[in-house]
Design a protein around this nucleic acid. Sequence first.
RNA 1: GGGCAUGUGGCGCAACUUGGACAGCGCACCUGGCUUCGGACCAGGCGGUUGCGGGUUCAAAUCCCGUCAUGCCCGCCA
Length: 625
Amino acid sequence: MKAPSKELKEEFINILKNAASEIGIKMEKDEIIATISKPKKEFGDISSSIGFKLARIMKTSPHIAAEKLVQHISKGRLIKNINELDGYINAFIDEQSYAKLVIESILSEGNTYGSSDIGAGKKVIVEYPSVNPNKPWHIGHLKNALLGDAVSNILEFCSYNVEREDYIDDLGLQVAESLWGYINLGDKPDKKFDQWVGEEYVKVNKMLEQNKEKVSKEIDELLKKIEDHSTKEAKMCREFAEECVRAQYETAFKYRCYHDILIWESDIVRAKLLERAMKIIEESGSVEKPSEGKYANCIVANLEKLGEVFEELGKMEENRKVLIRSNGTATYLAKDLAFHMWKFGIIKGDFLFEEFMKQPNGKVLYTSSDKGTDMGFGNADMVINVIGSAQQHEQLMLKALLYVSGHEEKAKNLIHLSYGEVELEEGSLHGRSGGWIGKDKNYTADDLLNEVSSKAELFTKDQVSEEEKKHIAFEVALGAIKFDFLKSSPEKKTVFSWERALNFEANSGPYCMYTYARAAKILEKAGAFDNEKINYSKLERSYDFELLLALGEAQEYVERACSELRPNIIADYLLSISSLFSKFYENMPVLKSEAQELRLGIVYATKQVISNMLKLLGIMPIERI
RNA sequence: GGGCAUGUGGCGCAACUUGGACAGCGCACCUGGCUUCGGACCAGGCGGUUGCGGGUUCAAAUCCCGUCAUGCCCGCCA
């Protein structure tokens, strides 16, 4: 359904368009849209700077042009008053009819209010967080996971068919190093497996520094063995990685982060996706096999033809990219290309799926495997990879390769959702050196949640049971953490600070949750309310109307967040609704007031919108906090 | 050398895609408000030549050119 704010805008545009044609000027709808904005509230509810455009055409001043236009202007269903000031056209809304439209839309649409159909009929794969299976999730991985989850929620709310996929690199050097430690250090797991493996991994890296020759030789040999899936080391490696992933997913589930499929690198290799991908790119004529020079005996992709399409790449000094090394092995990029051809349904391969585990939300998490069935995964129209900005070049290369393989359209629909990585005030988080291991508390997703939960517990009221207290504190902690990671634009780097993470005041998740709980309490005290009884003439042009104006805009924010892949737009919107509600709450008594039914309607509508928006960020609205 | 991202009051951010009316919000700081629907709140105050320099325009935080600072990246590694 169309948002009330959009109906309003359209009406305003039509009014302007008709008035312009009355004075003999034909203006396109798009031209007018560009002039529309929300003015300061003294000026009006919606305004247009159309006078400045007309001035040019009419060869007069903006003020005179706009004044002339206003003389030919008519009212609408939602717009009752229009005037002119210094070239701007300012309109005032008919409060009562607009309030009725907003409240009734929210009541009838309920938890779908604010949703959109812009993605209907399109399938999108979102890949996140793709953590190496040899360490616990730290706060850097957490940002990725929360971003991927929120973006997926938003896409779904916009009617996309979303497949949440997690890629597990179980053949990498990192895993080989960890497995080497597992086999050779002789330590036994004495804590959560991912945590233990992560700590062992740091030990291995210390040994590598001290005894480089011997250790790294052994690790190289192990790496070769695990790449050959017939060896017992390969089998052991997969089991090792699976155990680590299961431990990581305990954390994921605490954060209510769920997926549809896991894709293992070892399965990509086994399913021979690479061979098929190479065939396609070879047939496109974009590969070379030089017999001499720098790339002798390699298979390289030729990216010369990208100039006009990918401008940044066109300027590259080096426009060759190795796919198959001179020793016959494939580069990571080549394997990634193959995988992405699978995601887009360009190649099929013997890619099979079976159940990995049942998730707490009741949905099965599937995993790629050497047995099972095809299940119809893949075949996406759009692919979104949530990956840190450090891999920008790599992702661009992938896009380029897809392009020169003859899949220009797919290349366009491969999107790297690049985000600024998380840092600590004291430096890097990186796993190799154990930057995630803190002095007293670790920077893991588990420890963060524990820490914030205990803080939240101090805030909860006494009249609830211990059990409920724990539950509330947990939800508040999730709200605080998720909101904190999602409230600013993804591309900004995040410098983690305990002080900010533990702040529950305005501009935070708990502030929005608190607003929701206050609304819930009023409705609870009032008992049932009957929207048939609402007397709209009780509406004042005050806190109540300002709040309603904002509530009418939900869909516009959702669609923007969706097309820009920026959950912070939703967070911003939530804050403004929460703040407007708090002012309304303070200044306009609901219960036992003359306007009780109307204000209950506003409270109900606010509660619904906050709930819908919080869920998009993965935050659970709760009635008591 | 090249590419990308970031630069907005002491701190954290919004507005930039689509140029419009005195650049919004939070933290911190100062002042006030709970016998009244939940004070994780509200009302008010202090604080900004939007990194810098040009240009385009009636109008620039926003567009263009240049420049500086910070971070990341530019392998037959994964």
